[in-house]
Design a protein around this nucleic acid. Sequence first.
DNA 1: CTGTTAGCGCATTCAA
DNA 2: TTGAATGCGCTAACAG
Lengths: 343, 343
Amino acid sequence: MLSDRRMTTKKQEYQRPVSIKDIARRARVSVATVSRALHDHPRIGVETRKRVQQLAREMGYVPNETARSLVRQCTYTIGIVMPDASDPYAAAILHSIEDMARTVGYTLLLVHSWGMPARELEAIQTLRKRDVDGLVLVSSRMGGQLHALTNKLGRPLVIVNGNSAPGVGYTVRGDNVHGVILATEYLLHLGHRRIAFIGGPEGSRSGWERKSGYRQVLRNEGLAEAIFPGNGRLIDGVRAFQVMQQQGRLPEAIVCYNDLTALGVLQAAWQAGVGVPENLSVIGFDDILYSAYSIPPLTTVAQPKAAMGEAVVQLLTRLIRGEPAQNILLPGKLIERSSCHAR
Amino acid sequence: MLSDRRMTTKKQEYQRPVSIKDIARRARVSVATVSRALHDHPRIGVETRKRVQQLAREMGYVPNETARSLVRQCTYTIGIVMPDASDPYAAAILHSIEDMARTVGYTLLLVHSWGMPARELEAIQTLRKRDVDGLVLVSSRMGGQLHALTNKLGRPLVIVNGNSAPGVGYTVRGDNVHGVILATEYLLHLGHRRIAFIGGPEGSRSGWERKSGYRQVLRNEGLAEAIFPGNGRLIDGVRAFQVMQQQGRLPEAIVCYNDLTALGVLQAAWQAGVGVPENLSVIGFDDILYSAYSIPPLTTVAQPKAAMGEAVVQLLTRLIRGEPAQNILLPGKLIERSSCHAR
DNA sequence: CTGTTAGCGCATTCAA
DNA sequence: TTGAATGCGCTAACAG
């Protein structure tokens, strides 16, 4: 009685949509004329045009894009392959791409890859069959295997923050090395010397780049590196912190592969009674939605997610039109909040 | 020199994909034979079949789904309209729908609505032209306007957790009333008497239901209601808390419209030095990914998001096949974590 | 077993 | 200005 579990059990038939042929019949003209009327074609009588358009509206005509696509040989559809829409970072990218794509008349076909190369391949095949005008791979893990694919793809390809093979498609990416240098040097300026790093997914380019930026800075300063494995999820931050503590290797500050990892560290530190930022400084990467509201608010390197979406769509439309294009590298920006503290 | 801003400025032409006609020519058979071979049609020579299949593989043939869709009169595509993929709750739903849809051979066409009825309408039109086999509206705000639409839609419609008009499409929803009763009674059992509620979006069904569940419980107990407006975002939780404090109306416990709002309250309370759960109990709704890792971990009513995706796709496929169907109401579950404390 | 034909809904060329 | 015819890539009904 708590629930109004209404059981609707009607059966329903769906009727065939009206086509230009139907309109033609009713208007007593040819389908060609209808087509022209609907397109405001110049060579048509103003009289018939109005009549046909009126009729189309009355009959609830909706153009069949499938048929159009077939003759036009382009679908105004772009395919997007991403690991997982429930990852806040991926979702933000998806969000900005969808937004931009819509404004230029494209619709998005979405397939998840779960970060698995095999699934990615499958997804790409699916989208290729769907005859998308262009393809976006977010956080691709395929690397070399892309090579074999790209020749046969026959469609423009843009890779966002993923492993790309040279000469395969175009890329839009955040500047990971620069960003993590920003983060690490910030910690240095705050007076920290024992700075650890929690890594990202094995074999991912962003993971590699962020790690090497960290190493580069520490090496320049002659400081010891302390690198802990991770996989970019909340739980990885939790675990890494626990490992540090169990091993008695708690540092003064931690650079995290991404915000999710950092948020995990915040949680684990709180559980363990280690105060952030008084006893431990934590810095993230990405600036996801939640980071501004974590406890304490997370200092992080923001990725320009909106700009990325724009860049992706712009790049893709250029490629579709056959115009020259170039890879895009976007700088990150340090966002100072409250998870880091001077020593 | 920090960035490898490589400028790739090649211009590239994309070639026409190979069609069954191409294969037919090379194999010196008719297109019908090719089609049959590719489909393992019974009435074909095992010899020619193998030859054609081999050839197709060599030539890198990929079937054109657009053409298929045209003759088949169905696209194996389902359209999904949601406010915003970067909302963690919506993203989780999207995730589970995509996952389920893929396994049954459907691909997703995604359009954002930004929670604006006008945009929703636009999105539905877009998808209708795309000739989707079915439509999913997540957190729709359209309400009555759906009526006019649905007759002309000509496609099965499933509404997830949104405003629906009676007789328009089918619905899959979490049991909001029951869920919020669970939450409120839990607080009651913990000994709280001054329990406030922070509401959701104005005019949304879930907002209304959750509020009325709360009111129902308080009324039964003869307790005073304290309702603060909200809109389902983090910032709404922050603001509501600030208002409570400024007005000197801080309660013993707060039931929040959703987790995002609750997370905002956690943050604001922390900023204000109000300890959760010692001085204030907070309970959310949805159980988004992050809630298990907030500080403190958030007690909440979990929505069965995976089950929802399953239900949506199953319902939709039934409708597409013209089978009888029924609305689905899924129960929520209380997840006890650490944001509530006995008085 | 295989080829020929027609047609899905639409845009476009060529005639009229 | 309009109509008839053709084809986009593919499937399916009908002949052979």
